[in-house]
Design a protein around this nucleic acid. Sequence first.
DNA 1: CCCATTCCTGACCGTATGGTCAAGGTGAGA
DNA 2: TCTCACCTTGACCATACGGTCAGGAATGGG
Lengths: 212, 212
Amino acid sequence: MSDPNRFQIMPAPQKSTRIQQKNRAAILEAALDVFSAQGFRGTTIDQIAAAANLSKPNLLYYFPSKEAIHATLLAGLLDTWLAPLRTMNPKGDPLEEILGYVRRKLQMSRDYPRESRLFAHEVVQGAPRIYHALSTDLKSLVDEKTTLIETWIKQEKLAPVHPYHLLFSIWSLTQHYADFDVQIRAVMDAEDPFTNAPDFIDTLYRRLLTPT
Amino acid sequence: MSDPNRFQIMPAPQKSTRIQQKNRAAILEAALDVFSAQGFRGTTIDQIAAAANLSKPNLLYYFPSKEAIHATLLAGLLDTWLAPLRTMNPKGDPLEEILGYVRRKLQMSRDYPRESRLFAHEVVQGAPRIYHALSTDLKSLVDEKTTLIETWIKQEKLAPVHPYHLLFSIWSLTQHYADFDVQIRAVMDAEDPFTNAPDFIDTLYRRLLTPT
DNA sequence: CCCATTCCTGACCGTATGGTCAAGGTGAGA
DNA sequence: TCTCACCTTGACCATACGGTCAGGAATGGG
C-alpha cells in the first residue's frame, strides 16, 4: 500500500527522490527496449526488471503493473511523434516545409527506431490502447495540416495531390526504415539504408510536389 | 503418436481425408485471423480453437503445436507475397511494369490485410522465424529486379533513382494501408482510404519515374 | 454389419507469468 | 545517533497457457 505512484497525480510538485527518478528512468528505458522488440504480450515483467537491473517486486514498487509501464511509454511517445508535423510552418515555403517535415521524420526513424516500433506494434494490433488519442489529438492535427496543404495547392505552390494520402505516404516511407529495418538489412547486405534514403525520399517528394 | 501431420512430408501423395482438409483449412483461417490481430505471443491456442469451432485437443490433433500453425501460415505467405514482384516483366514497358507492380501490391493490401499484418508482426519483431527466407529468397529476387531496374535506368527509360529504395518505398506505401489501417481510418473518418489511394500512388510513381 | 482407422473430448499436468506480502535494509535529516 | 520514510527482496499465490493422455464416438471400406 505504500506505493509512491498511486498518488502521483497532482500531489506535491516535486515529490520524487533521486533514487525514484533514476529507477523510473531505468525502467522506462529497459521497457522501451523490450516492448519495442517483442510487443506487449511478448514482454514479461521479469525481462524488463532484468534489463533495468532491478528485482521484479522492486520494479512493481515503481509501477503498479506492466500495463502502467506500457501506458507511460505510449503517453510520452505520441507528443514526440507528432512534434515534427506540428512544426510545419504555414508561413514558410510550402515545398520546403514539407521536405523539412519529411527529413525530420526520417531522422526520427534513424534516431528513435525503438519508439517507432513500439508505435507500430500498437497500431498493427488495432491500437487498443491508443485509439482514442489517434482519433482526437492526431486527427485534429492532421485536419489542420491537410487544410494548410490544400491552401498551398490552391495557391498553386504545390502540385495537386490528395493531402491525406500525402501524409500517409510520409509516415509509411519514413517509419518503414525503423519498423522493417531487419527486412531492409536482410536485402541490402552491409550497406547502411540511411546513406541513400534521405536523398531518395527528397527526390521523390520534390518530383511529386513541385508545381508544373 | 497417431498424429497425421508428423509424416506428411512426402508420404502418400494424397493421404488427407475430407475432414482433415476441412479442419486444417478452418484452423489456418482462424489462426490467420487471430495471429494477424494479436501477434504470435498475443494469441492463445484456445482462441484459435474457438474461432475454428474446434476443441483445443482436437486442434492439436491436426497441428502439433502453436508454432507449427504459425510456421505453416508464414511458409504459405511468402510466395504469395512475392508473386506480384515476380511477374514484373523485363520485356514490358518499364514505367508500366512498375506501376503494374505497385497496383497489384496495393490490391493485395486491400484484399489480404490479414496476411500483410501477419507479415508486419513478424518483421517488426526482428523476423525471428522468417529471417532466413528474407536473406535468401527475398534477397535474390530483389537483387534480380533491382538489376533490371538499373538496366532500364541506363537505357533512360526510367528517371534515375536508387532501385533498392524504390522497392522499399513501394512496399511501405502499399502495406501501410493494411498494417496501419486503424490509424488511417481514425484520421479519415468515414472515407474509404482505398478510394483515392490508387490514384495518389500512381501519380507519385509516374512523377518520380518518368524520364525527363 | 463389422471393425479398423480416423476423429474428438474431458480431465489433467507442468511451467510461465502477473502480481502480492511481510519483513528486513538503507539513508538523510533532526 | 536515532528515527522514519523510503527502498529492496525472497517467498509466495492464482491464473493462464501450451501441451498430453486415455478413452469414447464417428466414419467408411469390405
